[in-house]
Amino acid sequence: MMETPKTDEKQEIHPMENLLRMDRMPHIWCPTCGIGLAVTAFTAALEKANIDPNTVSIVSGIGCTGRVAGYVKLDSFHTTHGRPIAFATGIKVASPKTKVVVFSGDGDLMAIGGNHFIHAARRNIDMLVVCVNNFIYAMTGGQVAPTTPLAAYATTSPYGCVEPPFNIPYLAESSGAVYVARWTTLHIRRLTNSLTEALQKTGFSVVEAISPCGMYYSRINRLGDGLDMMRFYHDNVEIRHGEDTKNLDIGFQTKIICGKFVDRERPSYNERYNQWLSEVKTAGRHSKGQKGSKK
């Protein structure tokens, strides 16, 4: 299936054509949206990590980022709101050789999907989770998300958000993720590098890609257009690799710390499972639940 990208002569071919569903273009994302950049970084990382695309399954949930699965030419699943990690867990456990990627948004993964996020991290299911954080529910028109900074406006916080946002890297680390990094979609090269590293890692890896919604978040909060926001992140991002994740809170228009924060080893779910399996096999039949006796 894989075609080598033709670089000569045919200029009009998209460099990532073999990894994108060109028959679905144009995509639905608005101008100034960073999700496309995150997708580009991901496809580039897939090539850099030298992974056979035929072995990769990508799962998305609902929302703007939830549409990613529909544009990437891999085995791709667009599932229900908040459940891509659970769906992907099924794939990984049933088919351990598959490389599983969950690509979804902050509302999907952190709000309704929060439970699956922490549990998959705890189990250390071998998957890469890319969370594009746009600070808001964009698909439904700009409601407050668990990542909306304090006092920022959204349609369901018309008087300013009253809940502090999640610090996603801290939550990921405290629930057991083995690889945690954060970039903005402005850091396309570093984001690609992190995604490459994470793809090569065994275990639950989380890469947060910050890309505030240029449609709702910036408009409701009067932050200018896409270029203004890019400028803001250009000027206000500080790169601190290895920073303690507890210091990574994001405020309203405050400095954002990016970098790779966690890179550790823990046995993955499949490894633990296999170990258990070999123990059971050597110990003979598991006694419990084997009540039915032969007549």
Partner: peptide, 20 residues
């Protein structure tokens, strides 16, 4: 108590706006 979902969000937004 609500959670955004199309096409019901306008009702919850109305409450967020007028409720307080």
């Amino acid at each position: 108590a609500g959670y955004p979902i199309t096409p019901s969000t306008e009702a919850f937004e109305a409450i967020c706006h007028r409720g307080p």
